[in-house]
Each structure stands twice: as C-alpha cells, then as structure tokens.
Simulated scan of single mutants.
Amino acid sequence: MSSIETIEMTPARSKGRRLAKLAAPALLLSLTVGGLGLAGTAHATEVPSCSTLPGQTCPATPGVSGSAAQPSAIPRGIQAALNYWRQLHWPNFRNIAPRGAAFEVENYVDRNGNHIHGWVESGGQYADNGGALMNFMHRGLAGANAQNYQGAFQEYYGSVYPSNPERSGIRTGNFRIVRALGTGDVWVSIDHYSNFRYVGRP
C-alpha cells in the first residue's frame, strides 16, 4: 500500500418514511368489545416461540440469509476487497473512511512489465433503512452477544478497482460489504443492498 487518500464526504442517505401501522386501532377495538376476558384467553393460549424458548433462534430476517451457526459463503467477487478491508483494520466513518474515501491497496509491476494498481473505496456510514440488519442481530442470528446491539454500521464497496473510483469515474458495480462497528459482524450484498448474506466476523 503506497498511499491513502480521503475524498469529500457526502451526506448519508435520509431515512425513508415509515408506513403507519393500521392494525393497532383494530386491535384496540377488539379488546374493547371483547373486554378483559379476551386478553386473559389470549395469554392462556400463548404458544412458546423461537424468541422465548432457551437455545432457539428465530427464522432468518427476510432479505438476509445465513446466521452465526451457519454463516453464508463469501462470493468470490467480494473476497479480495474484504481481505483488503481486513488488512486496513476496517477503517470507518469515525476516523478515516467517510463516504468516498479511496485507498490504494495494489501498486506493482507484473512479470510482463504492466504497472498494476488496485483501489478500494468506502461508502461511509450505512443507515440500515428498514432495520433488516439490526433486526437480524436483535433476533440472535448474529450470536447472543449481538442481540442488544444499538451501534452503527459501516459500508464498503466490495470490489477492487484498477484506478481511484472517485477520480476516474469508473463504475463501482453492485458489490457491497456492511460491518457492525461494535461487534465486527459482516454482511455482503451482490445486488446493492437488496439482499444480504451474513458471513460472520471475518
């Protein structure tokens, strides 16, 4: 690694609007009509769930596969970038990796005399809009010690580029890596955050 360059940070994505839940008024109405007897009956027939039984984990969060017990395989196209981020000790938006920070990770001449460059780029803080990753952690799917996580996430582009993406305008593709800063849990996405694979704490 011959140089590290931090590029201008852009604002994080704004959180999308959350739809109002319409089920609550209906539930309140049913409790009013049925009286306290309904609440007692519901409590008596409560069935143990994955969140109340010892040693059980809930089914995977929609859009997120894998778990601490069975981490997903890291896609081949993302492995090289993930290795470099690990070698860089996972820089994040709190220190030297705001959105658009580029790091040169390869700079050498190959056996044919070609000068090879390799760059990785940071995406800054990941907002987790919709809460899929936080929900995944709270349900115990990243391990018991991550269930109460309330911290931040960092995003990284999941490819190694032949030039500085911020300066060259090269297309950065759809590979992404997201890491929980407080626990080291890592997810990867091959479709620009539409779906995630939990890969553990590499």
Rank of each mutant, 00 (worst) to 15 (best):
G16L: 10
R17E: 14
R17A: 12
A20N: 10
L22Y: 01
A26E: 10
A26D: 03
L27M: 08
L29R: 04
L29M: 09
L31K: 04
V33C: 00
G34F: 01
G34E: 00
G35P: 10
L36V: 11
L36H: 10
L38Q: 11
A39Y: 04
A39V: 13
A39K: 13
G40E: 13
G40F: 06
T41P: 00
T41I: 06
A42T: 04
T45L: 14
T45C: 11
E46G: 01
E46I: 08
E46M: 10
V47I: 14
P48C: 00
S51F: 10
L53G: 02
G55H: 00
T57V: 14
T57Q: 09
T57C: 04
P62H: 07
G63N: 06
V64P: 02
G66D: 07
A68L: 05
Q70N: 15
P71V: 12
P71L: 08
S72K: 09
A73R: 07
I74D: 00
I74Q: 00
I74Y: 00
R76P: 08
R76V: 10
G77N: 08
I78A: 01
Q79C: 03
N83H: 12
N83M: 11
Y84K: 15
W85Q: 05
W85G: 01
Q87G: 12
Q87M: 15
H89T: 13
H89E: 13
H89Q: 13
W90T: 01
W90H: 05
F93Q: 09
N95Y: 04
N95Q: 13
I96C: 11
I96T: 12
R99N: 14
A102S: 14
A102V: 09
A102Q: 03
F103G: 08
E104K: 15
E106F: 09
E106H: 12
E106Y: 05
E106T: 09
Y108Q: 04
Y108C: 00
Y108N: 05
D110Y: 06
R111T: 12
R111Q: 15
H115L: 11
H115F: 08
H115A: 09
H115D: 10
H115P: 02
H115M: 05
I116P: 02
H117P: 02
G118F: 01
G118E: 01
W119I: 06
W119L: 03
V120T: 00
E121W: 02
E121Y: 06
Q125V: 01
Y126C: 11
Y126A: 13
D128T: 10
D128G: 07
G130Q: 02
G131C: 10
G131R: 14
A132G: 05
A132C: 07
L133E: 08
M134V: 11
M134P: 06
N135W: 11
F136K: 02
M137T: 01
R139A: 13
G140A: 05
G140R: 03
L141F: 00
G143P: 01
A144V: 07
N145F: 05
N145D: 15
Q147A: 13
N148Y: 03
N148R: 05
N148G: 08
Y149N: 00
G151N: 03
G151S: 02
A152K: 13
F153W: 08
F153E: 06
F153N: 06
Q154R: 03
E155R: 02
Y156V: 04
Y157H: 11
Y157E: 09
Y157G: 07
G158Q: 02
